[in-house]
Every structure is written in C-alpha cells, then in structure tokens.
C-alpha cells in the first residue's frame, strides 16, 4: 500500500517538474535560450497566489490559480521585453545570456525575500489538509488538481501547436526565424508568446505545489530539477518535458525510499547524467514533431 502511494506522489511531483520543464522547453524552442529563472518564476507564481489568498481568502482555489497565472504571465511578458529580447538583439554571447537568466532568477528570489520574507509560507486553505480516499488509499486532494491540470495543459498545448496560427508561427520560428519573417511572421511576437506561456505554466506549478509543501523565496531550486527533467526528455520537446518530469518525480520518490530521503535531490541529477551518458540528445530528440 505504501508503494502505491509513493508511486502516485512521485507522479504528482513529476507533474510539477513537468510543468516547469515545459517552460524551459518552450523558451528554448522559441528563442534558443535556457531560461534559468524558470524556477524563480514558479516561486513568484506561488507567492502571487499566496497574496491573492490573503486578499481574498474565500476565493476558490481555481481562481487563485488563474490569477497567479495571469499575473506571472504579464511579468514574463515584461522581462522578455526589457531583459532578454534586447540582449538577443545585440547578439549577446550565449554565456552572457545564461548569466542574464541566472541574474534575473537571483533578483527575483531576493525581491521575493524582501517582499514576502525569509520564512516559508503555507496556503491556509482547506485544500492543504484535504485527504480523499481512493480505493482505500489516502491521497491529498490536490494530487487530482495537479494531474488534471497537467492533462489539460498537454491538450491545450497540442491544440495550440497544431490548430492555431500562433502555434504554427511558434513552430516555424523555432525552425527558421528568417524564413518565418518572409511569411509575415514576427519572431518577436513568438518569443513573447513563448515567455508568457512558460511563465503561466511556472506559476501554475508554484500554486499547485504550495498546498503540498510551502512557498519560499529559495524554492527556485525546484527549477533545477525541472531543468534536469527537460534535459532528460530532450530540451525543446514538449512531450519530452512531461515525460522527463514524471521520470524525475518517480525516480526521486522511489529512490529516496530505497536509498534515503536525504539523497532525494541528487537522484534527479543522477538520472539526468545516466540518461545523457546513454543518449546524449535526451530521450525524445526525434519527436520534435509532437511539438
């Protein structure tokens, strides 16, 4: 019985990693940029949800989720415009771009510390303590929210990439920005869209993570595990980000049980290293078409 719960909780935390990993992949595809601030975007989403809750404690959780996603999405739009795009336009070296994203992450973390304090905060809502019994197994209700949200995200992204002009343009720009311009596509608009979506997914991860654990200014570290997940699934692949997230979530939960929970955090990276040794391009490098 314990094993079943472990697996389910591994898959759930894997969904959280997957959501953040999706953000890494979207931005990488759209701009060729690894945005190391992605984990701090998740943290920001978690805190914005917390603030929304303290202003309106009666608001249903779904609304908190949507508010945090919209606010963080706007935030992503702004940092893409004021920080990343100008740097890319001036052909900044890859190493400086990476430093820029790390720097933005640090600024976000410290700003959050100033604003929300150094102590972790907990969402004081019934959902945090709500346990449902499914087939005799006690499971936090938020698990179902997380898995449901992940499912909706996959469906929505699939529709976006295959059925909309915006999605088609995103894919075209990621393959050939110059020729995309000849088709009348504005690559800048595509990178805005990618950043906004990535930020919204990160925010959702933060808000969905909060009832299980807490929100704290230094939780951007979760982003590093999500980065490992994105790498495992081949950076840039949407499908791979999700599967990579699930692999990392499962591996660290089960591995933590077997080896010891204090080693949990290193397992994500051990898995990443193992995968890269066997398959340097990641697991789903062929599957760019899945978008």
């Amino acid at each position: 019985m314990n094993a079943v719960i472990q697996i389910l909780s591994g898959l759930t935390i894997g969904c959280i990693y997957g959501l953040v990993a999706l953000g890494f992949s979207m931005i990488f595809r759209a701009m060729g940029l690894v945005n190391f601030a992605q984990g701090d975007i998740m943290m920001l989403g978690g805190f914005l949800g917390y603030t929304a809750l303290s202003i309106a404690p009666e608001l249903p959780f779904v609304f908190i989720l949507v508010i945090a996603m919209i606010a963080t999405g706007l935030f992503g739009f702004v940092i893409e415009r004021v920080a990343y795009r100008p740097a890319l336009k001036r052909n900044a070296d890859q190493i400086y771009l990476v430093l820029l994203t790390l720097g933005i992450g640090i600024v976000l973390a410290n700003a959050a510390r100033l604003f929300w304090g150094a102590n972790p905060v907990v969402y004081k809502i019934p959902l945090t303590f709500d346990i449902v019994h499914v087939g005799g197994y006690p499971l936090p209700r938020v698990y179902f929210y997380i898995v449901g949200f992940m499912t909706l995200t996959i469906i929505a992204l699939n529709l976006l990439f295959t059925k909309t002009w915006t999605g088609l343009a995103l894919r075209a720009v990621s393959q050939d920005p110059t020729t995309s311009r000849l088709m009348g596509i504005d690559p800048g608009r595509s990178s805005s869209v990618a950043f906004v979506i990535a930020s919204m997914l990160g925010a959702a991860a933060g808000v969905l993570y909060a009832p299980l654990f807490y929100v704290s200014f230094d939780m951007g570290a979760v982003g590093l595990k999500a980065f490992a997940a994105a790498i495992i699934g081949s950076l840039g692949s949407v499908f791979g980000a999700v599967v990579g997230g699930l692999i990392v979530g499962l591996a660290e939960t089960i591995g933590g049980q077997i080896i010891g929970t204090e080693f949990q955090d290193s397992i994500a990276f051990a898995v990443m290293i193992a995968v890269l040794l066997l398959r340097p391009q990641g697991l789903f490098a062929q599957n760019r078409r899945v978008a």
Binding site: L168, R171, A172, Q175, D176, T179, S180, M183, I185, R288
Partner: peptide, 13 residues
C-alpha cells in the same frame, strides 16, 4: 520548414 508537414508549410504561406 523541415518539421512542419507539407500542409502546414503551405498554410504558413
């Protein structure tokens, strides 16, 4: 566009 289908390549025009 190598990873768009023929149909999508036409559509994007």
């Amino acid at each position: 566009f190598p990873d768009l289908t023929v149909r999508e390549n036409l559509q994007i025009g």
